[in-house]
Amino acid sequence: MKSSVSTIQRPRGQGLVWFVPLAVALALVPIFFNNYYAQQATFVCMYAALALSWNVIGGFTGYPSFSTAAFVGLGAYAGAILQNAGMPMVLAWVAATAVTALFAAVLGYAILRMKGHYFAIGSIAIVESMRLLASSWSSLTGGGEGLNLPIYPGGPDHAGRVFFYAMFVVMIVAAVMSIWLDRSRLGFGLRCVQQNEDAADMVGVNVNASKISAFVLSALFCGTTGAISASWVSYISPPDAFSILMTLKVPVMALLGGAGTVLGPVLGALVFVLVEQTLMSRFLDYSQAMLGLIIVFLIFFLPGGLLGAGVFARISARIARLRGVQA
């Protein structure tokens, strides 16, 4: 009887079947390939971490957040300022993460009472406001000139590898967090909120605390990512740090993979970065239009994402059938 109960649940841990091999393959890239590929792999890890993070608020909780870039930018500036003040690099990353989390808690308390379009607009406005603030507060942020960071010693190849593994670790931690969340009490509560906020409240879910927790979880690794990429590029400026394009790209990746699925965003980030790289290098002048076309295609032809649309389920069913034939 018990076993029939657990089969009713959505299948769990299914994503690990492809996530583990993918992660291993990514980890090997800088060992076997040159710096260019290491760089692309770093982007994959970075966007995977960001998309996984976004998924916590946008997918699990169902709040259309566009504040990713606000967290990334804040993490970048916090990390840069601390590192320039003499803090060791890794410590500065950790501190930037903490600063971002704190900011997200306060911001979440303020803006999570909005819903739907209002929340979406509010969250975009936060990014714009932070960018303007960074450009005007010159004494702290260097204003429009931006900030330089110390260049990582040991040559570009070595540095490339160091930053790749840093991003890789962030992605793994974000994935572990997603898997934990999916099975946790908090994650269940967030799904309740996503389905029907009033009913969740009535059933005993502390809706506000859950939403704020989700917002903080969705911000944490954005902060880390921002700080790491600031150190990686050794320069930050307001429009790069608080990029509107990024704030919209990350949800698109999560949607591409399947919003609300546990590890789908990783797949979305991977596919997106690959497509972007191949298209961009070929149609340099039309790169943005290409992105736009991908978005339009995604919405009309893959509304549930790569995993959500049952594409993956169909493939695994086929594999299972093949196995059955062999046996």
């Binding site: 109960v5 009713i8 649940q9 009490r185 269940f188 509560g189 799904r191 309740c192 389905q195 029907n196 009033d198 009913a199 969740a200 009535m202 059933v203 005993g204 879910v205």
Partner: peptide, 18 residues
């Protein structure tokens, strides 16, 4: 006020859990 896309079991489990 159900949680529409959850199973019946999950709906009731939400009550028991929270």
């Amino acid at each position: 006020q159900p949680f529409p896309q959850m199973t019946v079991l999950e709906n009731v489990a939400a009550g028991a859990l929270f």
